[in-house]
Amino acid sequence: MTPVARCLVPFLLLLVAGCAQYENRRGVEAGWTDAYMQTLQPGVTTRAEVMAALGPPSQVIALEGESILYYLFERSDGEGIVLVLYNRMQIDTQYDRAIFFFDQNGLLTDAASRIAPADNG
């Protein structure tokens, strides 16, 4: 290999750069919008109505006579650069979730929800 070619090899390597991006979605589609949450009425809304609106939950928890429906939608966004000498990946995961408490009669007692911002910065 000539000296000139030897010099060019590392610079060519630097040009062989790449990037990567991916997204990952798991869980129950987030139907618990602010508009939906405002329609809920403690003591009136039933467990069946919540499940009819949001579908099967991610988790059902039995308390003593009461129950909890827990909904989770997990979003991961990753992006990275591949420069051979230096490689970097960043993965941001957000959790959209909602929780509903029901009494012995299946009536809503408490509820809360959170839909994380689309961009974590």
Partner: peptide, 14 residues
């Protein structure tokens, strides 16, 4: 060329 560095950053939740 003989060395390389890789960094992974994960942000899990707010």
């Amino acid at each position: 060329m003989l060395s390389g560095c890789t960094q992974w950053h994960y942000n899990l939740g707010e």
